[in-house]
Design a protein around this nucleic acid. Structure first.
Lengths: 239, 239
DNA sequence: GGATTAGATTTTGTATTCAATATTGAAACC
DNA sequence: GGTTTCAATATTGAATACAAAATCTAATCC
C-alpha cells in the first residue's frame, strides 16, 4: 500500500475510513495496530494516533491498554452524524447571514456562479467543499470549528456518494443556501443547511445500502425523531 | 511536578488546561514540547498527543512541523464553548425526555434527591457530573457523544467556578432540568439545559475576570447573538 | 466437567533515537 | 539601510526499542 506522507496519522485515519465505507471493516471488528502498520509500511506510533483521531470522531472504540475496535457504523449512525453536522452548519449559516460581510458574500457569489456552470462531480465536489470552508471560516469561532472538524473525515466521503448519485439535487440545495445567505435571512439560511444535509444523508445511505455496506432495511428513512430536534434550530423568525 | 500516570497524554492535556485557567498561559503563547515534557518528567510522545487532543478541543493551534501555540482564549471563546455545549445538551435532554426510559428516570431521580440534600461544592460537583453522564449515555449516540467529549476538559473546570460561586443557582438550574426530564417535556428539558449552561458560563466568566485571567471588560455579557441561535433549538412545542 | 488461577503470549503505551522540516541569524547584494 | 539568500540551529514527526498491562492457554482444583 502506497501512502501520501505528510501527516502520516491523518493518512492512516483516512485509510481506515475508506475501508469502512468500502465495507471491508464491520462494526465491532478488531483493529490490529501492527497489521495496519505493516499494511501501510509505517510505524505504529502514527497508526495509534490515527486511531485516536477516529476515536474522537466516534468511529473507533478504544480503552487504556485494550484493543481498538470499529464502533457501531450503520445507517442510524451516519444519519446522526449528518443531523449534527447539519445543526452546526445551520449555526454557521445563521451567523454568516446575520453579519452580511461583503467580502464573504462576494466570495460565495463567485463560488455559486462556478457551481451553476460546472459539470462533473469532481469539480462540483471541490467547489462545494470550498463553499462550506468559506462559510465556516467566516461564521465559526474556535470551538465551533473544532466540532465541525469532527466530521471532516466522514462527511466528505459520504457526501461524494450523493454528488455522484444526484448532482442536480445537490446543486439546487447548495444554491438555496447561497440565496438565503446573500439575502441575509438567518432563519432561511439555517433551514437550507439542514435541508441540504438531510438530502445528502438520504442519498448517501441509499448508495451504501446498494453497495451492501448497510443492510437493505428501509425503515429508518423517515421515522428518525432526531431530525425533529435539529429542526428546532431553524424554527421561529429572527429575534 | 508529580503526575498521575494512567493515560499520560490525558494528564498532559489536563495539566495544560489547568495552566490556561490559572492564567499562566496566554493566547498566542508558544507551547514548547520539550519544556512541557521535562517539566512533567515524561517523554515527548504523550506530550505531543496531549496537545493534539487540545487542538481537537479548539484550545491549541498546531500545524505540520510548526510549533504549537495557545489558541485564542477569552470570554467570548468560553461563551461559545458553553453555547455549543448547551445546544448539544439540549439535544440529549430532548431525547431523554421523549424516550421516558423508566430505568434512566429512576437513576436521575435518585441523583436529584442526593443533589437536593448534599452540601459542599465537592459533593455537588461529583453528583452533577454523574447526572450529566447518565443523561448523555441515555440520550446520545456515538457521534453526539464524540462532540460532547470535545468539552470534557474545559466545561468541568469552568463549571467548578460557578459551583463554588453560586451553589444555590446551580442546584436550582439542575433541578429544573430534572423536573422537565421527569415530566417528559422535550422542549422544556432542552430549554432548561440551555438556561443552566448559560448561567454556568456567566458565573465562570465573572470568576475568571476577578482572577485576572480575562480582562475586566463587561460588555459581552448580554449582546452575544450566539445565544439567540442556540435558543432556536428549544423554541416551538413538540411536533 | 466446569471454574479458577498462574504463567506465557500478545498488545498497547512510553522512552529513546533518528530523520525531516521550519526557524533563525548573519553575510552578501541591491 | 533594507532585503534576500543560505547555512546553522532548533523543533517537530516518525521509527525503533523497551516497559507495562491485558489477553490467552493450559494446568489445577472443586
Amino acid at each position: 500500500m502506497k501512502l501520501e506522507r505528510s501527516n502520516t496519522s491523518e493518512a492512516v485515519a483516512a485509510y481506515v475510513l475508506r475501508r469502512l465505507f468500502d465495507g471491508d471493516l464491520r462494526s465491532g471488528q478488531r483493529l490490529d495496530l501492527d497489521a495496519i502498520a505493516e499494511e501501510l509500511g509505517v510505524s505504529r506510533v502514527p497508526v495509534r494516533e490515527g486511531l485516536i483521531q477516529l476515536e474522537r470522531d466516534g468511529l473507533v472504540e478504544r480503552a487504556h491498554y485494550r484493543r481498538a475496535f470499529v464502533a457501531e457504523f450503520d445507517d442510524a449512525t451516519v444519519r446522526e452524524a449528518f443531523e449534527l453536522y447539519g445543526m452546526l452548519s445551520a449555526l454557521t449559516n445563521r451567523r454568516v447571514a446575520r453579519r452580511r460581510d461583503p467580502a464573504v458574500l462576494e466570495a460565495l457569489g463567485k463560488l455559486d456562479e462556478a457551481l451553476a456552470g460546472c459539470d462533473g462531480p469532481d469539480e462540483f465536489e471541490s467547489l462545494a467543499r470550498e463553499f462550506r470552508r468559506v462559510v465556516n471560516v467566516a461564521g465559526a469561532g474556535n470551538h465551533l470549528r473544532a466540532l465541525l472538524r469532527t466530521f471532516s473525515g466522514l462527511v466528505p466521503v459520504a457526501a461524494r456518494f450523493s454528488i455522484d448519485d444526484a448532482l442536480a439535487e445537490e446543486r439546487a440545495a447548495l444554491h438555496a443556501e447561497y440565496v438565503a445567505l446573500r439575502d441575509g435571512d438567518p432563519a432561511a439560511a439555517g433551514a437550507a443547511a439542514l435541508a441540504h444535509l438531510r438530502l445528502t444523508a438520504d442519498n448517501a445511505i441509499r448508495a451504501l445500502r446498494r453497495r451492501g455496506v448497510f443492510p437493505p432495511g428501509d425503515s429508518s428513512d423517515t421515522d428518525d425523531p432526531g431530525w425533529d430536534d435539529a429542526a428546532r434550530i431553524v424554527e421561529g423568525s429572527e429575534a
